[in-house]
Nucleic acid binder design. Structure first.
Length: 498
RNA sequence: GGUCCUGUGGCCGAGUGGCUAGGCAGAGCUCUGCAAAAGCUCGUACACCAGUUCGAAUCUGGUCGGGACCUCCA
């Protein structure tokens, strides 16, 4: 099989993936800040990394996948003087901060499950790792890269930059970054304009606060990921991921903190997923163009023409590369829905096909090798920086072959048994194991199946007697109930729930 | 202003120095009691202007347009 290539934000190019420890991969993804519902744009990132996680496992790696829950310390605004997001929300809703955290954590996990995302192997919380964050901040102070002012600990960006390029991840020079920032105001206590807080002094109004060597306070936003990734994956690990919007600040600061603390670059491969847009504009809470997953599944949002199932949405995302922006639209989602149905119908039939060994001489050599080539391309495409869209394209090229065998336009022994088995296993590997798709309608209720079989028998009988009134009635009434009955070639009938 | 991404056929979207991406929609045909599904065939696209090249939509430069980040955000 081809080697895995991964686009590394640090080098701005695709690189051969080589884990630090053979056969093991340490993967860290920045999770949600649980002070409100996740919207679809957030979900895109987690779905992308779920597929990356699944593919790494498919390749045989043992993966430790850490995705944090940020439940403390995330500030409003850039000046490290805003309110803790959880306290603010809690005050608004008259709840304990941890009630907010609990509510949205539960909601987040539920949404992840609906999208069929696998849970990470470790899902640590910021509040559960306060000690680790304090220890890390202290070490950075001891190493000379942070200073304390009035109970708050700041990271000294300019000092750090003298030894290591601070803007390395997004290819920015410190001078340029300084130009883009505002002047320090009179109330500022930090030394440099780019300095950010590792630990923030809490006032009496802060509902969440912990004791520290610098007094009561709470952790800064960036330190939690550095502390937790080090704890579970080590001072240097393989892949760190997140949305592209995090690269310039959050991830840049993570690199600086870890480097200042442990004297090593924390991450080998930085991976960033692109944004989901609506009418070309990034989906975000502030833009007011975000859909909640529930609104999508129920079709209740004004921008939605209808409801879209979680698998429909997941498939829609798979058709685009993770590093491209993806524009949301009803037309695109409906096109994806139809495409998925056609692909899944073919897949269903493929898995029911049985190997025919009695007439191996009937193999159509040309067709057989074409099929093998397309199937083997799945691995190639996925190993080329997780190109799910190309894998799907190859699959769709095989759909007519499968359907032709179904319609008996192509003999069922035109494809060798080896090739059929290969096709079955690779389709399953990718569609279910790697892409994480599952049947949308589990029409596996045995009683319903019995009833349907009865109706099919009656319809067959009436058709054979040319009693089309009865046969049409059965089909039409089922259609009204949301069940599609189809006459297949050869007199068989099949049905599916819409 | 700085850093970067991007502009593909009706729509969504891959990708590449020369070879059909794919999906959806549309047209024709086949199959069919009808319907649906399915199969076959079809559009021959890559913002604009120069340049490099035997050859560029793919590389370089410029023009115009869109977007992200530099401020909380996946």
């Amino acid at each position: 099989m081809s080697e895995l290539k991964v686009y590394n934000t640090l080098s701005r190019q695709k690189e051969k993936f080589e884990p630090i420890t053979p056969e093991h991969v340490g993967l860290y993804v920045c999770g949600p800040t649980v002070y409100s519902d996740v919207h679809l744009g957030n979900c895109r990132t987690f779905i992308s990394f779920d597929i990356i996680y699944r593919h790494l496992m498919y390749l045989g790696f043992k993966v430790r996948y850490v995705r944090n829950i940020t439940d403390a310390g995330h500030l409003e605004g850039d000046r490290d003087e805003g309110d803790d997001k959880f306290s603010k929300k809690a005050r608004l809703e008259r709840l304990e901060p941890m009630e907010i955290v609990q509510r949205y954590t539960v909601g987040f996990r539920k949404v992840m499950e609906m999208f069929n995302n696998l849970p990470p192997t470790i899902e640590p919380t910021a509040t559960g790792h306060i000690t680790e964050q304090i220890i890390m901040a202290q070490q950075i102070i001891d190493n000379g890269y942070a200073y304390v002012v009035n109970g708050t600990v700041y990271f000294d960006v300019e000092k750090y930059n003298k030894e290591k390029p601070y803007g390395i991840l997004t290819n920015r020079k410190l001078e340029d970054l300084l130009e883009g920032t505002r002047e320090l105001g009179g109330q500022d206590e930090k030394k440099g304009r780019l300095d950010f807080a590792l630990w923030i002094k809490a006032g009496p109004e802060h509902l969440m606060q912990w004791p520290s060597p610098w007094g009561m306070g709470f952790p800064g936003w960036h330190i939690e990921c550095s502390a937790m990734s080090e704890k579970y994956l080590g001072k240097q690990f393989d892949i760190h991921g997140g949305g592209m919007d995090l690269a310039a600040t959050h991830h840049t600061n993570e690199i600086a903190q870890s480097q200042a603390c442990y004297k090593t670059s924390p991450v080998r491969y930085w991976m960033h997923t692109n944004m989901l847009t609506v009418n070309g504009v990034r989906m975000s809470k502030s833009a007011g163009n975000g859909f909640l997953p529930e609104e999508l599944f129920s079709g209740s949002h004004p921008l939605l023409e209808k409801a879209y199932s979680p698998m429909n949405v997941r498939f829609f995302m798979l058709q685009t590369h993770y590093r491209s922006t993806l524009d949301f639209s009803n037309d695109a989602l409906q096109a994806a829905e139809k495409g998925l149905k056609r692909l899944w119908d073919a897949y269903d039939f493929l898995m029911k096909m049985e190997v025919h060994t009695e007439k191996p001489e009937g193999t159509d050599v040309e067709l057989d090798s074409k099929v093998r080539k397309l199937v083997n391309e799945f691995d190639e495409h996925m190993n080329d920086d997780f190109n799910t869209a190309r894998v799907l394209a190859s699959m769709f090229e095989l759909v007519p072959v499968i359907n032709s065998i179904k319609d008996k336009t192509i003999a069922n022994n035109a494809i060798s048994s080896d090739t059929l088995l290969l096709m079955q296993s690779k389709f399953k590997n990718y569609l279910e194991d790697v892409f994480g798709l599952k049947p949308m309608n589990e029409a596996d209720n045995t009683k319903l199946q019995g009833v349907m079989q009865l109706l099919i028998d009656i319809r067959k009988e009436s058709k054979s007697k040319k009693d089309f009134a009865t046969s049409d009635k059965i089909r039409n009434q089922l259609t009204e109930l949301g069940i599609t009955l189809k006459d297949e070639k050869g007199g068989e009938m099949s049905w599916s729930i819409d």
